[in-house]
């Protein structure tokens, strides 16, 4: 069973929901696929058991074989390879690793070498809980490859929670690909509603099953609840905003350990989505 937790807008509480739900369950694996700005690890204490690099390839030109014909440069859609007077320039950070330049090279002058674009860190939280997160190196353009590696490394887990990147771009699509159920974390403001609609559009186009948790439900207005009712989207739970919660979160603590209210909310969400098999 794979459950993705996502939100159109950032800051709605997606990570809070992910780490607390994960901590509430008796057995689960969590991956944080928000590789640009991973935060789940700030709340989860555990031993790092493994670290692995994620690599992409970029071309290396053998100057002895190159005849400066320029075919690689003409083919490259990303302007990552440019033959100059006495050498061929390769801009590693522009390269998408499509393999095209080597294909079109008439003298077989191009081979590929690896470049690390980020890391995946494995943490054992307790004996039934594994947690993985990815971290994209600053200055790299895309984290999709790290997300795909995270998903691949955990494809056989019995219960997998996926903390997804915010928004509706290609990273989000990569993160929720193959999920059995998606939980949207939203907030009842005009911004929150607008961003959630984009997520709903994405999930419907992808034929995903999903429900919504409205966080900070006592702020803003009722428009989001009306929208959910009109669209017949399941409202999984409402969670109130509380200054007390904000200061617990600010210090990187888990809300379920400090608030019965919050713990009950996690229990309800878990039961609605998973049944009682994974109850604490």
């Amino acid at each position: 069973m794979k459950i993705a937790i996502l939100s159109g807008k950032g800051g709605t509480g997606k990570t809070t929901l992910s780490v607390n739900l994960f901590s509430y369950l008796n057995k689960a694996t969590l991956i944080d696929t928000d590789v640009e700005e991973p935060n789940s690890h700030l709340f989860l204490k555990g031993e790092t058991i493994k670290e692995e690099g994620v690599f992409k390839k970029y071309p290396l030109v053998n100057d002895d074989l190159c005849n400066y014909c320029g075919k690689c440069s003409d083919f490259c859609n990303f302007n990552a390879i440019i033959p100059a007077k006495k050498k061929v320039l390769v801009f590693q950070d522009l390269c998408h690793d499509c393999g095209g330049c080597a294909l079109v090279c008439p003298t077989d002058a191009i081979s590929y070498i690896d470049k690390e674009i980020g890391k995946i860190i494995y943490k054992q939280i307790d004996k039934n809980k594994l947690f993985l997160y990815g971290n994209l190196t600053v200055g790299e353009i895309s984290g999709v490859k790290i997300i795909e590696t995270l998903k691949k490394s955990t494809q056989n887990e019995e219960l997998l929670l996926i903390d997804s990147p915010p928004g509706t771009s290609c990273s989000t699509v990569a993160a929720i690909d193959g999920a059995d159920y998606c939980i949207i974390c939203a907030e009842p403001t005009p911004f929150g509603l607008s961003d959630m609609k984009m997520v709903v559009e994405l999930l419907r186009a992808d034929n995903q099953n999903f429900g919504v948790v409205v966080n900070k439900s006592n702020l803003g207005n009722d428009d989001i609840f009306k929208y959910l009712e009109n669209e017949k989207i399941e409202l999984l739970e409402r969670i109130k905003f509380d200054r007390e919660f904000a200061s617990i979160l600010a210090d990187g603590k888990l809300l379920i350990n400090h608030s019965e209210y919050f713990k009950n909310k996690m229990a309800n969400i878990a039961r609605k989505v998973l049944g009682d098999k994974y109850d604490q």
Binding site: I141, G167, A250
Partner: peptide, 26 residues
């Protein structure tokens, strides 16, 4: 938000950048 290509495109060549943050661990 974030640090990938969309953010890089938004900040290159600007005169001033204002970063908005909040007092949380994240």
């Amino acid at each position: 938000p974030g640090i990938a290509c969309n953010v890089i495109s938004a900040i290159t060549g600007v005169s001033k950048a204002i970063i908005v943050t909040e007092p949380t661990i994240s």
